Simulated scan of single mutants.
Amino acid sequence: MDMKNMTRISSIHIFGFQTRESISCLVFFLFLMVYSLTVCGNFLIIMLVSSCRILHSPMYFFLTQLSVSDIILVTSIVPNIFQGALLKEFTLSLSDCITQFYFFATAGTAECFLLTVMSYDRYLAICKPLHYNLIMSHFFCWMTVLACWTLSILALLLLILKIIRLEFCGPDILDHFFCDLHPILELSCTDISSITVHVMFTSTFFVVIPFIIIITSYVCIIVAIFRIPSITGRQKAFSTCSSHLTVVFIYYGTLICVYLVPSGGQSLNVSKFLSLMYTVVTPLMNPIIYSLRNKELKKAFEQLTSSLSTENKLMR
């Protein structure tokens, strides 16, 4: 293939969701509502954990970091959906497209790490309760979170440095609602074998291995729960990790379907729907799942609302 006769593309036409014009405004307001609820819900969790002393524990500290990653994830994706809903087709520069992928992928990778750390936290709390306070110190929690974000940022930065060296010759059309890795690489007219190997290695280290650790942790947790003699004790122990387990199944279930199931086995619309699940729906579901199943969060919310109402009365 003669590279000299090819034109390097500088912008990409993104098709997004091809909906009827009659419902485009409805789709726009639906996603606007989802985005607003997602950001507000995750910010509420961060505020509750920061302001309420009863939530100053490792589990809730990690939950705030999960909320941060959810906010970054959905904020990097949803603006494209807004444009796609109203314009049907819009244009992004190649650099903007790659930048979007970087922020989305960094937040997604950090979420994989954070879910793994949270499973380890639950493992220690249930299987090694005598060692929990000793291991889960304030310093350890901060260093763990710092490691999660640093590894995610650096790993994706290395991948981006390889992507920007590629020649992109078109077609300049991306039939997706955001700039994901595989659609971007399909626009390249140069050899991507080194990037493919890099992606396989990083996916194994950052997605597969954490998932195996999570599953192993929960096998140990379930075994430990069944050893508890009283039914009440079992229910109490399981309730402390049921929310996290639900989030893991939703997030990893869609990730596996999108990235590990062969693309030939699913249509483009199915691929878009599954991508929508973990980029938009999961960040919305996380605060809902944790707030509905967690009595301490509900109690903290009641305390916060009562204190705010008291302050308003005093101001009047």
Rank of each mutant, 00 (worst) to 15 (best):
F177H: 04
I192Y: 02
S193C: 12
V197D: 08
D191N: 10
D180Q: 15
V197H: 06
R165F: 02
L185P: 07
L181T: 05
D191T: 05
H176R: 13
I195A: 03
D175M: 06
E167L: 12
G170H: 03
T190A: 03
D172T: 15
I192T: 04
L187N: 08
E186F: 14
P171Y: 02
I192D: 01
S194W: 09
C169L: 10
L174M: 09
I195V: 02
S193T: 05
S188T: 06
L174F: 08
T196N: 05
M200F: 14
H176Q: 10
F178Y: 09
H182C: 09
H198Q: 14
H198P: 10
C189I: 04
F178C: 01
F178A: 02
V199Q: 05
E186S: 15
F168T: 03
S193V: 07
S193D: 12
P171S: 03
L187F: 06
I184Y: 09
M200T: 12
I195D: 03
R165E: 05
M200R: 11
C189G: 05
G170P: 13
H198G: 09
F178M: 04
C169G: 13
S194A: 15
D180I: 11
D172K: 10
G170W: 08
F178S: 05
C189A: 08
D172Y: 12
V199G: 03
D180H: 11
C179D: 03
V197S: 14
F177K: 08
H198L: 14
F178P: 04
F177C: 06
I195M: 02
S193L: 14
C169Q: 05
D191Y: 07
V197N: 02
H182L: 12
P183D: 09
C189D: 05
T196C: 06
M200Q: 15
V199C: 05
T196V: 04
I195C: 01
C189N: 13
F178I: 03
D175G: 08
M200Y: 15
D191H: 02
C189V: 03
F168S: 01
V197K: 02
D172W: 07
P171D: 00
C169P: 09
F177I: 11
S194Q: 10
I173D: 11
D180S: 14
F178L: 04
L187A: 07
D175I: 07
H182N: 10
T196H: 09
I173T: 07
E167T: 13
E167C: 12
L174A: 14
P171T: 03
L187E: 09
E167D: 15
I192Q: 00
R165T: 00
I195F: 00
G170K: 05
D191C: 10
C189F: 10
T190V: 04
F168D: 01
C179A: 04
S193I: 03
P171R: 00
R165S: 01
H182Y: 12
F201P: 08
T196Y: 08
D191E: 14
V197E: 13
T196E: 09
D180C: 13
F201D: 12
I192C: 01
T196K: 04
